[in-house]
Amino acid sequence: MTIHVPNVNHRFDPLTINRLGLWLFLVSDASFFIALLSSRVFVSGTSTPDEINQVLGLSLTVLLLLSSLTAYRAEVAAENNDMSHMKNMLLATMGMGILFVFGVGYEWYEALQHFPPSTGFGTVLFTLTGVHVTHVATGILTLGFVYFRVRKIETIGDNLFAVEGAVKWWHFVDVAWVFIYPTLYLLK
């Protein structure tokens, strides 16, 4: 059986091509988030009900920003071939991610009482957080796959892009939240 390894490229190494691909994907997904955010004003104007749990929203934001920091540490560690630190940081990031998902779950539990999906604000809240939390979940999943792949190896070698890509994705998801949070919680 012949194995076709496309002799991709003449001038660019695979890492660069992968990076480009990821960036293009981020641009595309950013476009989705713009659509998402713009629908907020249409559906429930700029009003934010008082019942919304401001403390929870702020904690979630802080949590996600912290996880971005650990993700960044993981990437740096990967570049320096510091495997054990990298693994720890990956685990920490995933841990905070999972916490975030539970936080959103709690937020939904509360929201169901005050503004279920059949109300204007509920529609916005569940859509924005729902789409975002799906992204977070894919981020956790990706980090999980990466962790699974690097857990037993000594040097990073070919897996650098895997770590880098997962981390970039995580940062992207965090930045998306940075836009969603004020749109959802702070508009008056």
Binding site: V43, P117, G120, T123, T127
Partner: peptide, 13 residues
């Protein structure tokens, strides 16, 4: 699926 109200008044547009 979730009975959201993007498009119907009140609230939606």
């Amino acid at each position: 699926v979730f009975n959201m109200v993007f498009f119907s008044p009140p609230g939606g547009n």
